[in-house]
Nucleic acid binder design. Sequence first.
DNA 1: TATATTGTTACACC
DNA 2: TGGTGTAACAATAT
Length: 304
Amino acid sequence: MPELPEVETIKLGLQKMIREKKIRRVLVRLPKIISLGPATVGNKSIPSPRAVLFFKKMLANRRILRVERRAKLLRINFEGHLTLLIHLKMTGQLIFRKKGERKLVKLFNTENSKFYTLPHKYTHVIFEFTDGSKLFYNDLRQFGYLRLVNDQDLSKVRELQEYGPEPLTTQFTIMHLMVAATLRPRVTIKQFLMDPKVVAGIGNIYSDEILYWAKVRPTRKVFGIRNQELGKIHKYIKIVLKKALQAQGSSVGDFFKVDGSEGAYHRQHRVYGKAGQSCKRCGTVVLSVKLGGRTSSFCPKCQL
DNA sequence: TATATTGTTACACC
DNA sequence: TGGTGTAACAATAT
């Protein structure tokens, strides 16, 4: 479940490991993961064998300039005005391995989950670099995608047009949240925070944690949230995401850094995944509810 | 064996 | 027209 801090952590890891490297070849083991051009990112139609060949040929012998992120979407920028968009969705992983290195990786960060050598049966795309190092794209649920786009077409990619502001920039103001709130008054504050058009990069984990610190129940409708509370939500969006980024993300479920190691922010979680446990602030049992088909956890005493 | 999981889109409904 | 709610995607852990 990579959200903004996790995707940013991956971006920084990739920036360190693969910047300036040249691709020798690309292996595509599951064609439906890849696609070409700007239209309907996320469309899972299976590309033709010709399109797969084109994808591989376009990337072969090409050098990586830099790695960027917008919302939860990674952008690998190549020489020759070509960009690879990578969305990990729920269970996508990017794991880098140096030449000759042996590496055991997990799909889930649970105690009993097993270790695999790479590539494993959930490895769908492999990038081989000219120095013998490799980058593995793994995705258990196959919701993620790798999409190759000419730089001139980037502005036509719908997601990039529709994402709300980056929460850790000065563009993201209380006023922005207030305006967005008047446009979507009937949804719950939880769904509001998770809407990528309202603000980029917040998913289930961080919306729960942000609402805990802001002391707002996830079930409340947006129209009933006072401006002072919206101000607190704005404040804790910044604080929680920054702290999570400092800890290099939360390794609950399936997130690992590009070297295969864990982030550390899940150790600081207060409510996400804590239903049935007692609140660290007041001792009350943390509850969970379903909102829009998604689980949300909160402390019924701390969050009003 | 049944159920929960989860980011985002597609689609039905009003 | 567009806000809202829900199904869909996949395959695992529990």
